Structures are given as C-alpha cells and as structure tokens.
Amino acid sequence: MTVRLVRGVEIASVAKTAGVDSIYVDLEHCTFSLDTTSQICMACLAVGIAPFVRVPSMDPSLIARILDGGALGIIVPHVESRAEAAAVVQAAKYPGQGKRSFSSALPHLRFNSVSAPVAMQAINAATTVVAMIESAKGVERADEIAGVDGIDILHVGANDLSNDLGVPGQTDHPLVREAYRRIWEACRGYRKHLGIGGLAAKPDFADELVRMGARYMTTGSDLGFLLGAATDRVAQLRSAYPVA
C-alpha cells in the first residue's frame, strides 16, 4: 500500500488489519518529513509490516537517513542505467556490498547494542532495493540494471512509462505490454523479481502480469482507498434515500 496522505503511525496498524505485506511512504509525491517517515517505519516494524520508502532522488545521504530511520527498503524512481543502479546499491548497503555509513542503535534491532559486523550483515540481508523502470531508456537497459548485484526488484511505473512511450494513460497499450515483457525477461535472467504499479484500473492486465511472474504489486494508496470507500458509501446512501 502506498502511503502519501496519513501522517500518523495508525497507518501501520491499518495496513496490518487490511492484510498487506508492506507499505511504502511515497516521498517522491508527498510532503512528509523525514521524522514522520521514520515514525511510520518504526510503527510498521512493531506490527510486522515491511516499511519501504520511495525516495525522491538518488542522493546517498538521503537514502542513508531514511534507512537509518527504520525503512527496510528503498524504491528508487527513474533508474535508467547500470551505473545508477550500482550507485543506489552502494548507498543502501553497508561495506561488503556497499558504502553506507554504519550507525549503532538502529530501530530495526530495537536499539539493542549489536556488534558492527553482525548488524551490518543482518541489515544488508534484510534491506530490499527496488529500481523503478519508468522510461524507454530504462526498458532498453533493463537487462544491465537487473544484472547489478544488490538490486532485488525491477518495479515498473506504468503511468510514467506510458507517458515516456508517447501513450499517456494507456497503461495496457501494446508498447507498454512489450516493455513489461522485456523487463520480465531481464528479471528472469538474473533471478530478480518483477514489480507492477499503477494498474489499479486495469485488473485484468495486472492479473496477466502476476500469472507471468510478477511478485511485487502496488495495490493502491491510502488516499485512493479512503476516497473510493467514501464515494461508494455516499452513492449507496443517496440511492437508498433520494432527496425529494
């Protein structure tokens, strides 16, 4: 579930009750502070929901602060090359896999004092790195991006991708479908996972992709769920009790 509206830690329990596996705080498209993001991430850790954060840029200092704040994964938009994917991994992983600076007393470890080698190995293993493919260039280089050690998921942003391919809003257009096929082939070749998003209005196409092999799906946003449920309920009431 994408989170870009609810700023309180209650969203973690809502996600748990709803049955989702993970949330991601969408810092690319919302105005949450790092503190708010960290509080939500820590609340998710406490109830057993994996907290991810979609970062607004590839800034390594920002990525490190987000992960230190409790995130178990980062989602990086607009990745278009092997070099960019490798730089993201370097920022997200501790030595052994990357160059992230180590900080003791992490919320992931409930602030327990753990030796640096043990903590770094455990956090590296637990941290998911998601590269978003949202452009024709990214599709062309999907194979080299998938080949970067430390990248776990290639997540397709269908809306931005359709825009870049010249078919805005047509998220199941043949050009988009072909892009998904190429990205899936890259994932399969390197034993990485395919992620899909922006297809809430195209459930049949989403189902095709899951059957093809996609294993990470963005189900919708907190705003979308709230607005959708409220709109349906009001329509139901107006139908049942029409105003004379």
Rank of each mutant, 00 (worst) to 15 (best):
G98Q: 13
L165T: 00
L72A: 00
V210E: 15
V156D: 09
T17S: 00
E10W: 12
G70W: 01
S38N: 08
V167A: 11
T31I: 09
M42A: 07
N163E: 14
E208V: 12
G48C: 09
I153Y: 11
L109I: 13
M58D: 05
R141G: 07
W184I: 05
A87S: 13
L209D: 07
I145Y: 10
R233I: 00
F32H: 01
F111H: 14
R65S: 09
D143A: 15
N124I: 03
S221F: 04
Q39V: 08
F111Q: 10
D172H: 14
G73L: 12
A85M: 09
C44I: 08
T31L: 02
S115H: 14
G157T: 06
L106D: 00
M120C: 12
R100N: 07
D232Y: 00
I123N: 01
A116N: 13
A116Q: 15
F111N: 01
E185D: 13
I23Y: 01
I153D: 01
G73C: 03
A214L: 12
A126P: 01
A201G: 04
S13A: 11
A122C: 05
F52A: 04
S33C: 03
A158S: 14
L45S: 07
A71R: 04
G228Q: 02
C187S: 11
L67E: 08
S221Y: 00
W184C: 01
L227Q: 06
Q121C: 04
Q170V: 01
E28D: 08
A200V: 11
P77T: 06
E80D: 02
T36M: 15
R110L: 11
G70S: 02
A116K: 13
E140C: 01
H155K: 06
D35G: 06
V76D: 01
P168K: 13
E80G: 00
T219H: 04
A64P: 02
A83M: 03
L223E: 03
L67Q: 12
A136Q: 13
G198I: 05
A235K: 07
R54G: 00
A214Y: 14
A105F: 15
I123M: 12
E208G: 06
G169W: 13
G98A: 12
V130L: 03
A158Q: 06
I196V: 14
F102G: 02
P95H: 15
V79L: 09
A136E: 07
C30Q: 02
V55I: 11
